[in-house]
Design a protein around this nucleic acid. Structure first.
Lengths: 197, 197
DNA sequence: CGAGTCGTTGACACTCTTCAAGCGCGGTGG
DNA sequence: CCACCGCGCTTGAAGAGTGTCAACGACTCG
């Protein structure tokens, strides 16, 4: 099943086979916050609850493998292994969410943008040999979406990106394709990362 | 087992029987973000992983019921019901984390403080009959901790609290005990809450 | 060709932070 | 017993960092 990018509510369960799905929440006055991105090959959906006021939509062209609600809930009862894997994924998503809370609450705009690029490099770089020094990828989000992810405005995102480009940390083509020559230089701009030095 | 408020790393698993435990992450330059609060009767700990760089410490006097790591992992293998409940709690924490991401990323300082008070009222009010109009409780956190939870400075927290008091939304005694006479008035200050109107 | 979206850039306003001082309270020691 | 100090909290004044508003170019789609 192939989506081309249109918004949709997910009331069935799916596996993301390719592409990026964005999860967002919004306030009644229009403010919006992206609360997570699902890359392949992750599970999509929220068991045990009517959809928790989260909107899911495709950020890029997305390939899904989806099942009706009932079938998945049957599988979960039948297979321990399935429930176990779901628990592990949920714990990972919780870790990521909390990590991102630090970025949202305590990092400056330049650090937020750098952190976002670093996360992108680690998740969707097409040619990244683990621990490589450089990365190159297409941004799956528009500036406005990035701003909703980082809790800043699209103008600020744009300004910080051009600043990173001016400083030689990244190169940008077509406004969407980003190349990072030195990952470690990018990491230095993310604001300290360790816990308790 | 009774803690009196000192910091400690949790490498065993525990149930929170009473009190409030605060979970935080911090950057190497000292900036800190509280990423969650655990109230009774929740589970505390992170299975399947070396502690994920999260610090847990008691915010108030806390009563725990804790088990060694190995015992809990045995229980999880033995009892489906146990793993199932852990999954449900983790999903709930994920929902809360994402809800808070909206507050961190998209709400103003006045809205953040109001949202925090509302959350406190719902979680630790000693005399709250569901859907009651008023609430009264002791804050489990200092101003500095609240600011680390909301991603603002303690000065801003203080200013917004006195503003809420000046506007008659809350009353404050001893700088710690808060009374909310009209919950709905407080809710109006949290910034719209619905998903897609 | 006109309309719409996305991205960039500039000028200005404003929220929030930073820095500083002061108050109240509890613990400690002279 | 009381002065002293430390800590949490409040308040003020000034400044920095982002947001807001606006204009413009590049590109896509009808």
């Amino acid at each position: 099943m192939e989506l081309t990018g249109e918004a949709q509510n997910v009331d069935s369960y799916s596996n993301v086979l390719s592409g990026v799905v964005k999860l967002s929440k919004s306030l009644s006055d229009g403010r919006q916050q992206i609360v997570g991105l699902q890359f392949a090959p992750n599970f999509l959906g929220r068991p045990f609850k009517v959809e928790s006021s989260i909107n899911a939509e495709a950020a890029t062209a997305v390939t899904l493998c989806s099942f009706p609600r009932a079938a998945v809930e049957r599988m979960m009862k039948a297979s321990r292994e399935f429930e176990h894997r779901l628990l592990k994924q949920t714990l990972n998503e919780l870790d990521e969410a909390r990590e991102w809370m630090v970025t949202l609450g305590r990092k400056t705009a330049p650090e937020k943008v750098a952190s976002f690029l670093l996360m992108m490099a680690r998740n969707i770089d097409s040619s990244l040999d683990a621990a490589s020094r450089s990365a190159s990828f297409d941004l799956p989000l528009t500036r406005a979406e990035i701003s909703d992810f980082l809790g800043i405005t699209n103008e600020t995102v744009s300004r910080q990106l051009t600043r990173l480009r001016a400083d030689g940390v990244i190169r940008i083509e077509n406004a969407r394709h980003v190349t990072v020559d030195s990952i470690s230089r990018l990491e230095k701009r993310c604001g300290g990362g360790r816990e308790r030095p």
